[in-house]
Amino acid sequence: KKKPLTQEQLEDARRLKAIYEKKKNELGLSQESVADKMGMGQSGVGALFNGINALNAYNAALLAKILKVSVEEFSP
C-alpha cells in the first residue's frame, strides 16, 4: 500500500497542475503529449498532477523543462 502524500507534496501537485492549466494552450500541450515527453502513460501524468503519486526530483525537473518554468515555481 502506498503512503499518502504529505501536505507539502499535495501543495506541490496543486501548484504544478495550476501551472500546467495556465500554460498548456500557450505551449500546445495535452496530458498525452506531456506523458509522451516523459516516457510514461497519460494516467501517470494525471496521478502526478492530481496528487495521487508523489513527484520525484527527476519527474519534477522534466516537468519544469516541458512547462518552461523552474522547479521552485511549483515545489519551493
Results as ranks from 00 to 15, higher is better:
Glu21Lys: 08
Asp36Glu: 15
Val69Ser: 06
Glu72Asn: 13
Lys24Gly: 02
Gln31Ile: 15
Lys17His: 10
Val45Gln: 02
Glu32Gly: 10
Glu73Ala: 08
Ile66Val: 08
Asp12Ile: 10
Pro4Met: 15
Glu21Ala: 08
Lys1Gly: 13
Lys24Arg: 10
Gln9Ser: 02
Leu67Phe: 08
Met38Gly: 03
Leu16Arg: 03
Glu73Trp: 01
Lys68Asn: 13
Leu62Thr: 11
Asn25Phe: 12
Val45Lys: 03
Met40Leu: 11
Leu16Asn: 05
Leu55Tyr: 02
Val34Asp: 03
Met40Arg: 03
Gly44Tyr: 14
Ser70Val: 00
Lys3Leu: 13
Ile52Glu: 15
Ser33His: 13
Tyr20Asn: 01
Leu16Gln: 05
Leu55Ile: 10
Lys3Gly: 11
Lys1Phe: 12
Arg15Leu: 02
Lys23Trp: 00
Ala35Cys: 07
Tyr58Gln: 15
Leu55Asp: 04
Lys24Val: 04
Phe74Arg: 03
Lys24Pro: 01
Leu27Cys: 03
Leu16Phe: 03
Asn59His: 12
Lys17Thr: 07
Ser33Ile: 12
Gly41Ser: 15
Ala54Gly: 09
Glu26Gly: 08
Arg14Glu: 10
Leu10Asp: 05
Ile66Glu: 10
Ser33Met: 14
Asp36Phe: 11
Gln31Tyr: 15
Gly28Ser: 09
Val34Asn: 00
Ala64Tyr: 00
Leu5Ala: 07
Leu5Asn: 06
Leu55Gly: 03
Asp36Asn: 14
Glu11Asp: 10
Ile66Tyr: 03
Val71Ala: 06
Leu55Trp: 00
Tyr20Pro: 04
Gly51Glu: 03
Ala47Asn: 14
Lys17Glu: 01
Lys65Ala: 07
Val45Arg: 03
Lys22Glu: 12
Leu63Asp: 07
Lys2Arg: 13
Ala57Asp: 12
Thr6Ser: 13
Gly46Asp: 15
Lys68Leu: 04
Lys23Arg: 09
Glu26Arg: 09
Tyr58Pro: 09
Gly39Cys: 06
Glu72Ser: 14
Lys22Gln: 12
Leu63Asn: 05
Glu26Thr: 11
Asp12Arg: 02
Glu26Tyr: 05
Met40Cys: 11
Glu11Lys: 09
Ala57Glu: 14
Met40Val: 08
Gln42Cys: 13
Ser33Lys: 15
Ser30Cys: 10
Gly46Val: 15
Ala47Phe: 08
Glu8Trp: 09
Gly39Ala: 08
Glu8Ile: 03
Lys3Tyr: 12
Leu16His: 04
Ile19Pro: 02
Ala35Met: 05
Leu48Cys: 03
Ser70Pro: 14
Glu11His: 10
Pro4Tyr: 14
Lys68Trp: 00
Glu8Phe: 04
Gln9His: 01
Glu11Met: 10
Ile66Pro: 10
Leu67Ser: 09
Tyr20Cys: 01
Gln42Phe: 11
Glu32Val: 10
Lys1Tyr: 12
Lys23Leu: 00
Gln9Tyr: 00
Asn59Tyr: 08
Lys68Thr: 04
Arg15Asn: 05
Lys3Phe: 13
Glu32Asn: 10
Asn56Lys: 05
Ile66Thr: 08
Ser30Ile: 01
Ile66Arg: 07
Asp12Ser: 09
Lys37Ala: 14
Leu27Glu: 07
Leu16Pro: 02
Lys24Ala: 09
Asp36Pro: 02
Tyr20Asp: 06
Gln31Arg: 12
Val69Lys: 02
Tyr58Gly: 12
Lys17Trp: 05
Lys17Ser: 07
Lys23Gly: 01
Gln31Leu: 15
Ala64Pro: 04
Gln9Ile: 00
Pro76Arg: 06
Lys68Gln: 13
Leu63Lys: 04
Met40Ala: 06
Ala47Pro: 04
Asn59Phe: 06
Gly39Leu: 06
Leu62Gly: 09
Met38Cys: 08
Lys23Tyr: 02
Leu62Cys: 11
Pro4His: 15
Lys22Cys: 10
Val34His: 02
Lys2Ala: 09
Asn50Thr: 07
Leu16Trp: 02
Lys3His: 13
Ser75Asp: 02
Glu8Tyr: 01
Val34Thr: 04
Leu62Glu: 13
Lys37Ser: 13
Ser30Asn: 11
Phe49Tyr: 02
Val71Cys: 06
Gly28Phe: 06
Phe49Leu: 14
Glu26Asn: 07
Gly44Met: 14
Val69Tyr: 02
Ala13Phe: 01
Ser75His: 05
Tyr58Trp: 12
Gly44His: 14
Val71Lys: 08
Phe49Arg: 04
Gly44Val: 11
Glu21Arg: 07
Glu26Ile: 13
Phe49Asp: 07
Val34Lys: 03
Ala64Asn: 02
Glu11Gln: 09
Tyr58His: 15
Glu8Pro: 01
Val45Thr: 05
Ala18Arg: 11
Met38Gln: 03
Gln9Ala: 05
Val69Gln: 05
Ser43Asp: 15
Phe74Asp: 04
Lys22Ser: 12
Glu8Asn: 07
Ala13Arg: 04
Gly41Gln: 15
Lys2Asp: 13
Ser75Gly: 03
Met38Glu: 02
Leu67Arg: 09
Ile19Leu: 11
Ile52Trp: 09
Asp12Cys: 09
Tyr20Leu: 06
Lys68Ser: 08
Gly46Glu: 15
Glu32Trp: 08
Thr6Gly: 07
Ser30His: 07
Leu10Arg: 13
Lys3Pro: 10
Ile52Leu: 13
Gly46Met: 15
Ser30Gly: 01
Gly41Asn: 15
Ala35His: 02
Ser33Thr: 14
Tyr20Lys: 04
Val69Leu: 03
Leu67Lys: 10
Val71His: 08
Asn53Lys: 14
Val71Met: 05
Leu67Trp: 02
Glu26Ala: 11
Gln42Tyr: 13
Gln7Met: 13
Arg14Ala: 11
Val69Phe: 01
Ile66Cys: 04
Glu26Val: 11
Arg15Met: 04
Ser33Glu: 15
Tyr20His: 02
Leu67Asp: 11
Met40Asp: 06
Lys65Arg: 12
Leu27Val: 06
Leu62Ile: 11
Asn56Ile: 01
Pro4Val: 14
Ala18Val: 08
Lys22Pro: 00
Leu55Lys: 01
Ile19Gln: 04
Ser33Gly: 13
Met40Ser: 06
Lys3Thr: 12
Leu10Tyr: 11
Glu8Ser: 10
Val34Trp: 00
Glu21Met: 12
Ser33Trp: 09
Pro4Leu: 13
Lys17Arg: 12
Gly41Trp: 05
Lys24Leu: 01
Lys68Glu: 14
Gly28Trp: 00
Glu32Cys: 10
Glu11Ile: 05
Glu73Thr: 06
Lys22Asp: 08
Gly39Gln: 11
Leu16Glu: 02
Val71Arg: 05
Gln9Asn: 02
Gly41Arg: 14
Lys17Val: 08
Phe49Ile: 10
Tyr20Thr: 04
Met40Tyr: 08
Lys23Phe: 01
Leu62Trp: 06
Asn25Arg: 12
Asp12Ala: 09
Ser30Glu: 04
Asn25Val: 13
Ala18Tyr: 08
Ile52Arg: 13
Gly39Ile: 01
Glu21Gln: 11
Val69Ile: 06
Ala57Ser: 14
Gln7His: 10
Lys3Gln: 12
Val69Asn: 05
Ala54Tyr: 05
Asn25Trp: 11
Ala35Asn: 02
Leu48Met: 07
Gly51Tyr: 00
Pro76Lys: 05
Ile19Asn: 03
Tyr58Met: 12
Ala47Asp: 13
Val69Thr: 10
Asn59Gly: 04
Lys3Asp: 12
Leu67Thr: 06
Ile52Met: 11
Asn56Pro: 02
Ser70Gly: 14
Leu16Cys: 07
Gly51Phe: 00
Ser30Phe: 01
Ser30Thr: 15
Val34Leu: 13
Phe74Thr: 02
Gly39Lys: 11
Phe74Asn: 07
Ile19Phe: 02
Ala13Lys: 00
Ala13Leu: 01
Pro76Gly: 00
Asn56Ala: 01
Gln9Lys: 04
Lys65Cys: 04
Lys65Val: 00
Glu8Leu: 05
Tyr20Ser: 05
Ala18His: 10
Ala47Val: 01
Gln9Glu: 12
Asn53Ala: 12
Tyr20Ala: 02
Pro4Arg: 13
Gly51Trp: 01
Gln42Ala: 15
Met38His: 05
Asn56Glu: 07
Gly39Arg: 10
Leu29Ser: 03
Leu63Ala: 07
Ala13Ile: 03
Ala64Gly: 10
Ala57Cys: 12
Val45Cys: 05
Ile19Glu: 05
Leu10Ile: 13
Glu26Lys: 10
Pro76Trp: 03
Glu72Gly: 13
